[in-house]
Amino acid sequence: MVENTLPVFLENLSNEVAMFIASIDEVSINKACDLIFEAERSYGRVHVTGIGKPGHVSGYISSLLSSTGTPAYVLHGTEAVHGSSGQVLEGDVVIAISNSGETQELKATVETLKANGAKIIGVSGNVDSYLKNSSDIFLFAGVKQEGDCLNKAPRASILAETIVLQSLSVALQYAKGLDAKQYLKWHPGGSLGKSIREGI
């Protein structure tokens, strides 16, 4: 069974990712950069949130941004409406991730954050969604097929969300002129840190 289905899944996944990469909107990514720069000039911060699998993406992206010159914080998608939105101040930027853009829990979180004066960068595969319409900047991260026969469990969509936010992190990193010495300050450990020290 695996021998027959795995190549099909991998081919589907490869096709979806290739089509998504070809569709990435650089203009929107640059607008998201500008929104973050505007917040940082006023000492605002960046937070990343999501529900379910996108919630796990938010943890990775906040860590990636922090290590490449843009300090970012995880905001728990459901705890936000039970007090955790207190970590977000007026003028902060929140990156909100949702494949459907219609998840009820995330709607409540976004409504709370906007009411408290936060700016929203929405990331979704649904251009007609609540999240898209509620965002200050929208980054499309959509696929037609998740890659498997059920087309339900998030697989390709998770990769799309990750890729578009990795692209945002690269744009921010280059705009801020991050060099190896600065990167080493935030990532001194492990083989990565060692390789930078040896190369400097």
Rank of each mutant, 00 (worst) to 15 (best):
S23L: 14
Q145I: 10
I95L: 01
Q145N: 13
G122P: 00
A180F: 15
L75I: 13
F140V: 00
P7M: 08
V2I: 10
A160H: 01
D136A: 08
H187E: 03
T162E: 12
S42H: 10
I196G: 00
V93N: 01
S195I: 09
S134F: 09
S195V: 05
S23Y: 11
V27D: 09
M19H: 10
G59E: 11
I196H: 01
A96L: 09
R41I: 05
T68D: 03
S85T: 12
I158P: 02
A80W: 06
A141D: 05
A32D: 03
L65P: 02
R45E: 11
N15T: 11
W186D: 01
E26Q: 04
R197A: 14
E198N: 13
K119I: 08
L165K: 08
S157L: 14
G125V: 09
R197M: 14
G193N: 12
G147N: 13
G177K: 00
V17C: 09
S98C: 15
L106W: 03
A115G: 10
N151K: 01
N15H: 15
S135E: 02
N133G: 06
I200D: 10
L131G: 06
A96P: 08
F140I: 00
S63R: 11
T112P: 07
T68M: 07
E16G: 10
S58W: 02
P7H: 07
D34W: 06
S169T: 04
D92G: 15
H82M: 08
A171L: 12
S167N: 13
D25G: 10
T162K: 09
G50C: 05
T112K: 15
T5L: 14
